[in-house]
Design a protein around this nucleic acid. Structure first.
Lengths: 183, 183
DNA sequence: CGGCGCATGTAACTTGTTACATGATTCC
DNA sequence: GGAATCATGTAACAAGTTACATGCGCCG
């Protein structure tokens, strides 16, 4: 089984505030990016389905001067479904790191090629870590409220993992610089 | 774009030794499990396609006493394709951690529920780390050869990431034990 | 007034999983 | 003799991505 989690991502975000499909995508993209992703092709159809099932309530913006905008909010029923999911065992955990695939087979290529790959990976994760640090400092400035502490805890894993990546990049660059070149 | 990497996983593994589809699955499952996965539903069709394209050579086991067995080996052409892929930029990097989704929304559930989730996650990754440590010590025992050092480098990332996870679990358990319970 | 961001949506496609069918061999 | 493992393969399905179509509003 292991059904799609899009449904619960949406319900979870709506439990904090009303949002449009566009908003949801943006939040996932920014705040969840290091451990999750959702595309419009998933969000909009699920939103429609959730609305039919009365787990969320759709409200078209009434002031007609504005552009089309459908704001969704969670219903009582939706809250129950969300809370129920939270108690159920975690099913999804996956990772796909092509960089490790290339590292594994790297004796088939040159040192320079791998150094460049590691360099790019390092740069990306430096940026990601900086972003997470920025989020953290912003969050800490604001009043403690809602799921504030929980979000900090999520950020913490991101920081640790990115630090692990960066350490590994250093170590790997040393390894590569020492490696005698074949191929 | 961002085409499937199954093809290159297969070519890479075949660059070390001849293997059956079953073998490939097993190797990916054991050795790559912490950062990659492939299912039979992907491997067998790709193997057939690679054979048609002459990137690999299929050999049915001839001694007919044995059960059916198709051993694949990489061709010159296949080696070129593999080496070419190794030089191309890394495209695929994804992570999906449902545990962080649940952590993010955890103010909607009880402390006990989250403690149990974290406990399971911790246990899983303790096992994974132990397995990686075992691989490492086994590898270090054998003669240095082939892509030995590169494999150790891959293992190293797994170890660092798992250690990061375990630290986070500790930290999170402390956080949860202090958290006043809502909901 | 041009470009970017907001906003919704879908169709076609690719990818990946699961379940099933089949059967031999090995090990206890 | 029965269970586990080896071994191949596919069909149905589920999940996820990408590209496209459409158009408004805001800012410089």
């Amino acid at each position: 089984m292991n059904q799609s989690k899009t449904k619960f991502v949406i319900l979870g975000l709506l439990s904090e505030q009303s949002l449009t499909g566009y908003d949801i995508r943006k939040i996932v993209d920014i705040r969840f990016s290091f451990f999750w992703n959702e595309s419009y092709g998933q969000i909009y159809p699920v939103l429609k389905k959730l609305s039919e099932e009365k787990l969320v309530l759709a409200e078209k913006s009434k002031d007609d001067s504005k552009r089309e905008r459908i704001s969704y909010s969670i219903t009582k029923k939706g809250t129950i479904v969300l809370k129920n999911w939270l108690t159920e065992p975690v099913e999804t955990e996956s990772m796909r790191l092509e960089i490790l695939l290339k590292m594994y087979f790297s004796n088939m290529t040159t040192r320079e090629v791998m150094q460049a790959h590691i360099g790019t990976f390092e740069e990306n994760h430096k940026k990601q870590l900086e972003l997470l640090n920025l989020f953290e400092s912003q969050l800490k400035k604001v009043e403690d409220q809602d799921n504030h502490q929980e979000v900090l805890q999520v950020l913490s894993l991101g920081q640790k993992v990115n630090q692990a990546y960066l350490e590994w990049c250093q170590e790997t660059q040393v390894f590569l610089s020492k490696r005698r070149d074949r191929s």
